[in-house]
Design a protein around this nucleic acid. Structure first.
Length: 282
DNA sequence: CGTTCAACCTGGGCGC
DNA sequence: TGCGCCCAGGTTGAAC
């Protein structure tokens, strides 16, 4: 998502809209009116990512020069999309950022935040707010860079199930329900295993699998599952769903050993695993 | 400390 | 056709 809109860095925002659709307005902080006012005429300095959050660094263009830099932090949650193309429906367009024309550059004139369920959030923060929301106190190391040593240091004494811990953004940032299941299948570890029973070697295996699997998922532009709601900012489908070996495959044969994939519930989320490839250790 | 539940929302699928 | 469930890439706060 970040890569797909990275090209708007350097562009000027000419206006921001919060369209009123038939669905409820999305949660923002501060209010949409304040965001509209503060972003008008601002420049997008860069497009960053912190775990699952997207952050646009924006600075006022024609002020006195002492206005502080701000951060538009977008949290897509379940169904939020950042789009530079036509949205799937007009009903769920939550925010439109109109960009000033950029001559001799081949790019669209707007960024759209589209969110079917409306669980996503939009925040406009200062440097301190960003630090609080996305700094090291809130988010663990990024999943693309996680090491076995970091996981072991954070979880060696924890009784939590390893799959639940991998979903904790304060431990490691960026792993969601699909990738937690796929990582543990790749390393052959039962998702219910208490963290304190995981060996140092296994933590390294988990971290190695997390880095390589997430890197491949990013390369393949994510996972468009089920109704294929998920799209890149250019409206392309992800392709990593073709690599899923357990997620969403309850009752189907394990692609490694043929055993029927199990579905259980942990922390109110579905967990998929192969009971044979991921045996319960005792 | 860890787990469970509800809440925030819309929409697709299924059984009846 | 319609109603009532269950399910879904996530996060938060309260209760136990």
């Amino acid at each position: 998502m970040r890569r797909g809109i990275a090209h708007v860095a350097g562009r000027r925002i000419c206006a921001v809209d919060f369209p009123r659709g038939p669905v409820r307005p999305i949660a923002t902080s501060p209010s949409p009116a304040v965001i509209v006012k503060r972003l008008a005429n601002a420049r997008i300095d860069s497009v960053e990512r912190f775990g699952k959050r997207l952050a646009l660094a924006v600075s006022p263009l024609c002020g006195t020069g002492d206005e502080p830099r701000q951060w538009l932090v977008i949290e897509p949650r379940m169904t939020g999309l950042m789009l530079v193309t036509e949205p799937p429906t007009q009903d769920h367009v939550r925010m439109v950022i109109h960009l000033a024309p950029a001559p001799r550059r081949r790019s669209t004139g707007r960024l759209i935040f589209w969110d079917q369920r409306g669980l996503g959030t939009l925040r406009l923060l200062g440097d301190r707010g960003l630090q609080r929301a996305c700094g090291a106190a809130a988010l663990g190391p990024d999943g693309l860079l996680i090491t076995g040593d970091r996981l072991r240091a954070a979880l060696a004494r924890s009784r939590r199930a390893v799959k639940v811990a991998l979903l904790d953004q304060g431990i490691v940032a960026g792993i969601g329900n699909i990738y937690a299941a796929e990582i543990l299948h790749r390393v052959g570890i039962d998702p219910r295993t208490p963290c304190r029973r995981i060996t140092a070697a296994a933590w390294h295996a988990i971290a190695d699998a997390a880095r390589s699997l997430l890197a491949e998922a990013v390369r393949l532009e994510g996972s468009s599952i089920g109704d294929e709601l998920y799209r890149t900012p250019a409206s392309r489908l992800g392709r990593f769903q073709r690599r899923h070996r357990v997620y969403g495959r309850a009752g189907e044969p394990c692609l490694t050993c043929g055993t029927s994939i199990h579905r259980i519930v942990q922390a109110q989320r579905s967990t998929f695993f192969c009971p044979r490839c991921q045996p319960r250790r005792r």
